[in-house]
Write a protein that binds this DNA or RNA. Structure first.
Lengths: 133, 133
DNA sequence: CTTGACCCTGTAGCAACTACAGAGTTTATA
DNA sequence: TATAAACTCTGTAGTTGCTACAGGGTCAAG
């Protein structure tokens, strides 16, 4: 399997795969006579794991840690759960932030009367410090 | 007002102010004899506007556009509303993404039985392609 | 007159890619 | 067999929005 085929199989860009190799997330595969990377199913599994983790919002470092843990088969998976719960907490923090933004934006936009810029409520709202009506 | 005072007044870091100047978001102020930046109330207003926009999640380029519009006092503010609504739409997209992530993470974490790594449901879930149970 | 708190410029770093340039390789077709 | 298209290679620079130095200069207090 060359890099293009791997990329298609994991729904990833070729450059991203090379990037993962450069940062040590995906092991460097053997090369063909023409210096092409030659991947096997193990690489594909690792890459799918990585992409899935990224889709779920885990950082590269978290994924690195998860991949390390996944290789210690008879350890307890508590450390895995810790990473997952930490990430979930972070997701919840971001959700709270975004929800607050959404509400403020809706309030501000709702006040717009399509006046001239001089009386624009949106611009007025932006000119205030946080929370000031 | 020197840069440190401006920073305190707008709850911003000094380096951030210099960064905004470098990218042309905040106009370069006059300098004192000792080459210190000398700011006035106009700068403070512009910086507060910028920080407020950033807190609401607008990009630097959107803030640049909003500041430009704010200076054309007798134009209609429709263009302002367009930018705000576009940003709100983006916020909603991100909220949807994060909400999906949150749900998936909670499902995955809920399946954890604190087994060994070899049977870890979290790691299993990460090894699947998206949506596969 | 020196200590400390500030300010200056310029550059490099962060995350996680993405996008080239300029070269070599493989494969399909004429 | 030639050649063109489609791939691959390395290396480097760009993206966003800052943040963090290093190595200097300035200013006010004691």
């Amino acid at each position: 399997m060359n890099i293009g085929e791997l990329a298609r199989a994991a729904a990833t860009k070729v450059e991203t795969i090379r990037y993962y190799e450069r940062i040590g997330l995906l092991p460097a595969p053997p090369r063909t006579a023409g210096n092409y990377r030659e991947y096997c199913a193990t690489h594909l599994m690792r890459l799918i794991f990585t992409r899935r983790g990224r889709d779920l919002g885990f950082s590269i470092e978290q994924i690195r840690a998860l991949l390390d843990l996944a290789n210690q088969k008879n350890r307890s998976c508590k450390a895995v759960a810790v990473i997952a719960r930490e990430h979930l907490a972070e997701v919840k923090r971001k959700l709270a932030d975004l929800t607050a933004m959404q509400q403020e934006l809706e309030t501000i936009i709702g006040q717009c009367r399509n006046d001239t810029v001089a009386d624009c409520r949106i611009l007025e709202a932006l000119a205030q410090k946080e929370g000031q009506a």
